[in-house]
Design a protein around this nucleic acid. Structure first.
Lengths: 233, 233
DNA sequence: AGGGATCCATGATTGGATCCCA
DNA sequence: TGGGATCCAATCATGGATCCCT
């Protein structure tokens, strides 16, 4: 049984966390309407000259601006808040343009559980940062949208859980090579590598290790579209 | 049963290997008597300005000069010959100045066997390249010695095997933290890291993973002293 | 003088994602 | 238009070892 002071401390922590979360959202929303060029100026950095060679630029600079602490580490972007930052490219019709990368598919399949898996933790609390990604708009002139702080609804959670468990079951059945991007209603598994010759080792349920393309979990556009609708309607 | 042509091919391979090994030794010995400054000039590179910040310089440049193929990979330096290159720093009395790093201690202890372990493969065939390492000699003026091509004698092999099996047995008993550099007659285990705060995961015989300092196997000077004596007497 | 601590280079891995063709 | 392929930055891990204090 916790001592009363622990309860008081926790409660105080929760209040701080709540306030910090609101500050984070406020700061993120202060970017709404700004172009990439204006954003770069805010940061005092130069815009990369083209988008092909700077795919992750906006996401990484947004982390810097919002004070994310985890640089390429296996932690939430905002550790103390448990919040993950994800940029969300939009078409000219303000629909998701792409699937959204979530995290890498674990190389060790055995013993993975939904309750504790990395994907679930990543998607437990997300700060979405939409932006214009229509190729007809000059890159420097693309505008940042209004940030959305989101947690999965019961239905969304359950749908993700079902997809995840189906995909993981298929993986453990052995042939990673047979896993298709077509599986999964909202979640899919796709290659995630520098190139198609890259290989890592997958350890299957039989304990054997086989070389495979590194893969990642991606959210299909249908899923992120729901999030946008949920917020704007 | 092999076809007769396979036998002929192998024999041809062996001859090539023999010749290449002699060429390697000859090329290595052509460095005998040269100073670091002269060696750097041979390579067309600059000498690093001090030795503290360039600990691996000679070893790495020697690999380049001798055509080693494995750059930081888990292979022998000269893959086709199965030969490992090791530089050997000497005192003013031409005795080994330091213990000699061999390889990292595997993070997975279970199932390790002497017959197939990396340490045994590394030490199966070594091209030793001695050089003056007395701090009283200006770094640029240190001279390279006569290369020695070495394979362990039966007695040396057995002694290494005994040390290795003793050390590995201790590791698998659990407490990596309790392993001491004092153990082992010719072989020891010591830290091998950027700094003492670095940690990696060790998987013990119980299958549990515990964080530990990354460690390496080192040959004690007594061992390399034997190799020098064996050759020069 | 032995052993705990440390230094550099480079390849591999991971986290940020979007590209782009059939 | 979906999914196979790819791009950059930064960290991590490994291979090359020697430093340097007690």
């Amino acid at each position: 049984m916790p001592h009363i002071s622990d309860v008081i401390d926790n409660s105080s922590q929760d209040t701080k966390k709540h306030n910090s979360t609101r500050e984070l959202l406020t700061r993120a929303r202060s970017l709404a309407g700004k172009t990439f060029a204006q954003f770069a100026e805010l940061l005092g950095t130069a815009l990369p000259r083209n988008n092909v060679s700077s795919k992750g630029w906006f996401g990484q600079q947004a982390e810097v601006y919002l004070g994310a602490t985890a640089k390429s580490r296996a932690e939430p972007d905002f550790v103390e808040l448990g919040i993950e930052l994800k940029t969300l490219p939009l078409t000219s019709h303000h629909q998701p343009k792409e699937s959204t990368y979530v995290c890498t598919v674990p190389g060790e399949i055995m013993g993975q559980q939904w309750q504790t898996c990395w994907l679930r933790r990543k998607l437990a609390h997300v700060l979405w940062l939409p932006y214009e990604a229509d190729n007809k708009i000059d890159w420097a002139q693309r505008r940042i949208g209004t940030a959305i702080l989101w947690q999965p609804s019961k239905a969304q959670h359950d749908a993700l859980k079902q997809d995840w468990e189906e995909l993981m079951a298929n993986l453990s059945l052995g042939e990673m090579a047979q896993i298709s991007s077509h599986q999964g209603q909202f979640l899919q598994i796709r290659p995630k590598a520098a190139n198609s010759r890259e290989l890592t080792n997958m350890v299957g349920s039989d304990g054997n290790s086989t070389p495979n393309l590194p893969c990642g979990f991606y959210l299909r556009p249908d899923f992120t579209r729901l999030i946008l609708q949920q917020h704007y309607n």
